[in-house]
Design a protein around this nucleic acid. Structure first.
Lengths: 233, 233
DNA sequence: CGATGGCTTGATCCCGTTCAATGGATGTGG
DNA sequence: CCACATCCATTGAACGGGATCAAGCCATCG
């Protein structure tokens, strides 16, 4: 763990307002640490206080751990995402890399204090926190009231929005997470996820290439399968 | 819907910093509306932009609606809570009163603009948003990986924290929500929730009085039943 | 090209749902 | 203040979707 100019610069340009004074930039630099994570490794952070993480490059999963070694993936994150790792309470949390990752970490309380005089940073934190909350709420609905097929359809549509490359009416995806990760995110088992992929493939809604490649062929039909109220145009 | 000094004053004292200038208070007053909701009625709000709600008094549930008339309770709120109603996307949302409620509503974007010069308000919004996110994440774990008994135990412990009255080693609860609401919050059916209540009663962990009264007799055992990693002291 | 680990497919089981009936708390009119 | 009606909660029996257990399959990498 050392301070790396590259990653920090990435943080500055993506999170701090354009015209931030050099002394403020220096303050944030003293608070932040650069960490590189290899796939399947998790971030070590103090478990008694929250940590703010900026994902400069890569993809991660935020995992909650319950008793009996059960795991639930709370969220996936991609390049440019800003996230807060909660202090451990009734459950514990880990941030794990799906691919090689570069991230900047900050002690949450100190970061907030430093940001207090810069409402643009606060506003941005609030905005991103709201987006996270919104995603988490959608996931709550998905886990609470949807069937396996609906969950997998929702997942694919959600990934399409975040990392999909549109090609005409199709959307191409290169999933950085394994079937196990998807299952842990949707409250299902590997086997069930696999069966839903097969089902969607047999219905002609998706095409799969190898382990990580997925092409969405009929987004409208997926919306319907996902149990969405409004179907995308 | 009209401007009511009482409810607004409640908002001012609970959300705005102590020394807020009268012109700022006036600005927030022009943005906010006071609404009284009777039990089972829901708040009407524009579905294309988020709304900020301060719950002056009462208890509400935030409900997400999927296709096929399925409902998922995303969160319960109690007196003093500040919450954001999202704009409708793939799903729609309603805020419904569990008991008589007084609330102040603000257009989110305008509220944020008014708050921009007052970082204490921003900080508070951020703080409350973080708490909501944290609760939502706990719920995600609960819905994704826990059994019916664990879910109901988690629910009771969570309610104990928020509206419980400790009496010695016992905690007394007066639940404002019905079994249906609890079921919709936990991704279960009324019948299953009822069965878990019976189970916990038979095991001597809780006592029930009428429909809404619950006394937690063994918090430590409930923690264990809830699948928590750490058991409360 | 062969080994490894993840993915897919199949058979059986179980927890929570569904359907159905009973029980009991709350509230109203006599 | 009690009888009754209503609605919610509880209890029971049967069903089903996804989990579990168990093989095979095939991408990916040495």
């Amino acid at each position: 763990m050392h301070t790396c100019t590259d990653a920090f610069d990435c943080f500055v340009s993506r999170v701090l307002p354009k015209r931030t004074g050099p002394e403020t930039v220096r303050l944030f630099r003293t608070l932040g640490s650069h960490v590189h994570l290899k796939p399947d490794r998790h971030l070590h952070y103090p478990d008694d206080e929250p940590t703010l993480v900026f994902l400069c490059d890569g993809a991660t999963k935020l995992v909650a751990h319950a008793s009996d070694h059960r795991e639930q993936v709370l969220a996936f994150h991609f390049t440019g995402d800003l996230l807060t790792l909660p202090a451990h309470g009734a459950h514990s949390y880990t941030l794990e890399a799906l691919v090689d990752c570069d991230l900047m970490t900050f002690p949450y309380a100190q970061f907030l204090q430093a940001a207090e005089k810069h409402q643009q940073v606060l506003t941005q934190l609030l905005e991103r926190s709201t987006v996270s909350l919104q995603r988490s709420r959608e996931k709550t609905l998905t886990l609470g009231r949807k069937s396996a097929l609906e969950r997998v359809s929702s997942f694919l549509l959600s990934m399409a929005e975040r990392i999909g490359r549109g090609e005409g009416s199709e959307v191409k995806l290169d999933l950085p997470m394994s079937r196990k990760d998807i299952a842990d995110s949707l409250g299902l088992t590997i086997e069930t996820v696999s069966r839903q992929f097969t089902l969607l493939r047999d219905q002609g809604l998706i095409r799969t290439q190898g382990r990580s490649g997925v092409t969405l062929l009929r987004v409208d039909e997926l919306d319907r399968r996902a149990g969405h109220l409004r179907v995308a145009a």
